[in-house]
Design a binder for these strands. Structure first.
Length: 135
DNA sequence: GCCAACGTTGGC
DNA sequence: GCCAACGTTGGC
């Protein structure tokens, strides 16, 4: 089981929208590293759901409910997506500023590779984020 | 709105 | 295969 962080600009697709929809196909990724991450996702793996640009905070946890399949919004076979569903909202959002202020999270992919929209999160980092959200 | 950090493209 | 130019993302 691996853990992930997926980013979305809330005005494009927000956590609330995911909750309302029940599940969604996570598509539109056009970056090879992010694609590789999507392709290696397994059913049941948990993803931190991060709002980029507006909010800049982790707002919930989503669960992978299908392995990857071709992204119909792409014209090449290269690109894939997975289905995700809401798992649970965070009790309180964890902001980027808060993450940056936490020494134990300094190695997070989110910080090291800010532009990557699908990034792996270690189990430890995942647990720390959840713990912070419950403070 | 600006800019840093990347990724991609295309000329050579 | 290198590198300059350009485009995109996302924080500030």
């Amino acid at each position: 089981m691996r853990n992930w962080l997926i980013k979305s600009e809330p005005y494009k697709y927000s956590w609330d929208q995911l909750v309302q929809d029940g599940s969604t196909f996570w598509d539109g990724v056009r970056n090879y590293q992010a694609r590789n991450n999507l392709a290696s996702m397994q059913i049941g793996e948990l993803c931190l759901f991060y709002h980029s640009n507006e909010g800049k905070e982790v707002v919930g946890i989503a669960r992978v409910i299908s392995t990857s399949r071709p992204d119909p919004t792409a014209d090449a076979e290269t690109w894939v997506g997975v289905d995700v569903a809401p798992y649970q909202p965070l009790k309180s959002p964890v902001t980027l500023a808060r993450i940056k202020s936490e020494p134990s999270l300094a190695q997070m992919g989110l910080l090291r590779q800010g532009r990557l929209s699908v990034v792996e999160v270690s189990r430890e980092e995942f647990d720390i984020i959840v713990a912070i959200s419950e403070e």
